[in-house]
Design a protein around this nucleic acid. Structure first.
Lengths: 332, 332
DNA sequence: TAAAATGAACGAAACGCTTCGAACTGGTGA
DNA sequence: TCACCAGTTCGAAGCGTTTCGTTCATTTTA
């Protein structure tokens, strides 16, 4: 039903080859150019990218595999990734893993069958097996935000451990001794931030009793329940580090509900700045990621691989972070 | 390089037709089934959806055109839309218009050339011209969240006017007389909510002076600057209605900064509930949209059109909303 | 036991495009 | 005037699938 190049051929009397040449920016006689353009307009012709992709073996599309499209973090990063890709002439095929490894594995095969030219992954799983179909298909892959524990792929992320380590000084230098942590343990970032926390504590000569170490998932529930447990302790911590946006949100909800005040009752240090945190009183100290740079670097790296310009072993890029200061930490 | 159905043919000695039949769930002798499955595993075969789409003229992909992928509202709605589509066996091709009508128009053509089976649109533009290429190509279209001013398409949204009208009673019944509004005027939702606001005021016999009517864009800046202007007025309003998430955020930031308290100095009524608003003290009265239902109904409608099951004139579905109560409104 | 009916497998054409090498142009220089 | 050349145009093959109409093998029925 929709117009094809053959319709253009019949309308103009030119050959398929000439029309194709025009469509791809080749040189065509001015008079023919006019004819073709008129026919395109008249017939509402749009190139069929399926057919084009079939012969060129390129789709100009990058697959984006996100752990959850619902998270505000994802939204921001997608915005920057999308913009960077658009500037380079690529579209993106986003697939949502809904925080589910099964779905994630299926999604990889989906992207392969859609013949994407490359894949950017914000993974759910922490092991890389699920990516091997793409690797077999020789599709370039770049991890974003989260690294994997077994196989090394190109990866663009922040230095989670160091960022946490440095941010912890805000609590430590204000004489907090009893500091708890609520961290996700299912993904890379949560584990790294947890490790950064523990290192900071160790180097400061501070103990972290087992009930100060709350591990859970990347979720509001983990923050909510974790903080609840901490508040119920006989020997309560004076400060708490929370490893991501959702956990920070949940923990604060739970404090609000219980009538605990920050920083009077408990001092807080969180991760992943989002504008609305600025609304809160007190304003929370947050580690802020360079979203735009993350997206751009990932795209740059991926395109380098796709064009074969970059051809070395896997590269791991760890960007620095900024600490958004607040007044959520009391000096003891 | 990647394996094709021809490789399978050679490995198994069967014909293309038989293998294709297997791939599409047709009946094949058990022994052949085993052979095919073994070959698929061994060769890491994945169907080439480009080729398949070219002949079937179906891609099992729905294009999603969003005004901005950065907004948390978008993230939530995409999650539900995606889930509903996945259950029906469809993938989604998301394109971000970055709040820019030019990009939006280009994106429509992009989706057409990608041969999506249908399109769900959260539009930037308020006129529908940009969709005509898709209409010419006979691709079913469903609008989501926002309607258009000129052409009527299928649309799933909330009843913006009525929701606002009803929510306004919270302010009016608490004896507020001087109520201001900060609303976006560029998109449908903002205009409708503005109208709902004005109707509620008129029916209550209340005046709305010009400097109480702040119109702007769907942005934090509009909320921020709007509230600033209101706070600077000699005759300040006692209550303010804000037409969406971003504006509410911006307005509150600006109040916080200026040291204005809610509800003591100004009472607030907002739109688009997001979990983090529950963290704020006081908790803001917010009109909450049924995100899941919106996504599901849109998908349902679109699939109905794609299958030709629904075949009537454009349908406009307006869902109801819920008011999230808070303590941001003072009784005068 | 032969004919009819069932179920699977097959060959070839088609989907809409790109691309390669060959065939045309008209203008130039010998 | 003719051979040559650069610049366009053209025809045909091929990308990886599905599908239609046909053939083939097996089972059922009379």
């Amino acid at each position: 039903m929709p117009a094809t190049i053959v319709d253009i051929k019949e309308k103009t009397g030119l050959s398929l080859a000439t029309i194709s040449k025009y469509l791809n920016g080749g040189n065509v006689l001015p008079e023919n150019k006019v004819k073709i353009e008129a026919a395109i307009k008249e017939l509402h012709y749009e190139v069929n990218e399926l057919a084009r992709g079939l012969v060129t073996n390129k789709t100009n599309t990058v697959g984006i595999l996100v752990f959850s499209i619902e998270s505000p973090f994802t939204g921001m990063i997608l915005h920057h990734v999308g913009e960077a890709l658009r500037k380079k002439g690529y579209g993106m095929l986003i697939v949502d893993s809904c925080d589910d490894e099964q779905i994630e594995a299926r999604n990889v095969k989906y992207l392969i069958s859609k013949k994407v030219d490359g894949i950017i992954v914000l993974p759910v799983a922490s092991r890389g097996d699920f990516l091997s179909p793409a690797q077999n298909a020789k599709i370039p892959i770049v991890l974003l935000d989260r690294s994997l524990s077994d196989i090394q792929y190109d990866c663009v992320r922040i230095d989670n451990r160091k960022s946490t380590y440095n941010a912890m000084k805000e609590l430590i230098n204000r004489n907090h001794k009893k500091i708890a942590v609520i961290a996700s343990e299912r993904e890379y970032t949560g584990r790294e931030r947890f490790n950064g926390f523990m290192e900071a504590m160790r180097d400061a000569g501070l103990e972290v009793p087992a009930d100060y170490q709350i591990r859970g998932t990347h979720s509001i529930a983990t923050g909510y329940n974790g903080m609840k447990k901490l508040m119920a302790l006989k020997d309560r911590p004076t400060g708490v580090f929370m490893s991501n946006y959702e956990i920070t949100l949940g923990a604060m909800l739970s404090m609000n509900e219980a009538g605990f005040r920050c920083p009077d009752d408990i001092s807080l240090l969180g991760f992943d700045d989002q504008l609305f945190f600025h609304l809160l009183q007190p304003q929370v100290y947050m580690v802020e990621q360079p979203m735009k740079a993350l997206g751009e670097r990932a795209v740059e790296l991926l395109i380098g691989r796709m064009n074969g310009i970059i051809d070395e072993d896997p590269i791991e890029i760890a960007l620095g972070t900024r600490l958004q200061e607040g007044n959520s930490i009391k000096t003891l």
